[in-house]
Amino acid sequence: MDIRSNFRKRGIATIASLGAAALVITSCGGDNGAVEAPEIDEDCEPLHEFPTLEEGVLEVAAMNAPPKFHALSDSGPFEGIDAILITEFAAENCLEVNFKPMTGAAAQLDLSEGNSDLFGGLILKTEERGEVFGQAEGYIIYETVGFTSHVDDSFESVDEMEGIRVGTLSGSTYVEPLREAFGADMVEEYQSDTNAFEDLRAGRIDAIGWQSMQGFNFSEQDEDYVTIIPDEDPDHPELTQLFENNWPHTKDVPELTEAIDDYYERAHEDGTIEEALAENDIDGELADFYLNGR
């Protein structure tokens, strides 16, 4: 499937076809309006009923990483894919949303300490998280690693990156696989994606390994940088395989898990997730990749 012509219309270049070779994207973001939460009527009848920390409120520790989720301050405005989806999920269950923007590591800790009902920001589903949190059977979108680097020093495979210094986000699923691939002393952890990209620009690291959508968001801001999705590589499965994004939530609350799974299924069927991607300037072949995988 050749996607070169489609992506070039949006400032995106490809090395070759998706699924057969690495995908290079230099632009995929844009300005999007804040999500307005609807008022909950007193006579609202929830589609599902499940316990929350505070009655009538869904507490969400949200990883602040556009376009997945973005907040200019703790009080908003709130933007991004999960701001759209979580707000709708809460509303259909007669709940107000209290978004708490923070880093991914802080959000995961917040949920694990029982201070939130849900961890938002399109979070990777993993076995390790499943031991601590509730996770849905279904998924929102697929995700995989993206490597962001200067356009003159881009990398099409993990093996090409041998000997370079790589940044990643603290608490990320990719920390240990990156250490195994490149050596612990060659991997720098960051608390925020902004700090990681600043160090990349300053030359203190050579590349960043993170969720591809985060990489695209930053390389879109600077034409001197590019994000590449490498091929699946059996020698580096955890760095090249597809993961599913979902919302980790309070463990052992089956009613909440069931409600989330029901929402995911309907949101795929009626095009809600596809529309949320489009509202964040992710469409065409790239949206198909996130929705359906390689």
Rank of each mutant, 00 (worst) to 15 (best):
60 V>Y: 02
246 N>C: 03
136 A>I: 03
141 I>A: 09
57 V>W: 10
184 A>T: 11
213 M>R: 08
127 E>G: 05
286 L>Y: 13
145 V>I: 14
251 K>C: 04
141 I>D: 06
8 R>M: 11
214 Q>R: 02
180 E>F: 01
60 V>R: 06
38 P>M: 12
254 P>L: 06
117 D>R: 05
130 G>D: 10
144 T>N: 08
287 A>S: 15
29 G>L: 02
224 D>E: 15
100 K>M: 14
89 F>S: 07
167 G>D: 07
9 K>A: 10
251 K>W: 07
199 D>R: 12
193 D>S: 15
130 G>C: 06
52 T>W: 01
76 G>H: 10
117 D>I: 04
209 G>M: 07
124 L>R: 04
30 G>W: 05
238 E>W: 07
276 A>T: 06
24 V>R: 05
6 N>C: 04
205 I>T: 05
15 I>E: 07
250 T>F: 01
165 R>M: 13
87 T>S: 11
175 V>I: 15
134 G>C: 06
73 S>K: 03
208 I>D: 06
106 A>C: 02
169 L>P: 00
4 R>V: 10
217 N>I: 00
292 N>H: 14
269 E>C: 03
35 V>G: 07
91 A>W: 09
97 V>G: 04
36 E>G: 02
40 I>E: 02
179 R>T: 01
237 P>D: 11
249 H>N: 10
132 V>G: 06
213 M>P: 00
202 A>E: 15
19 G>Q: 12
220 E>D: 13
5 S>N: 04
141 I>H: 03
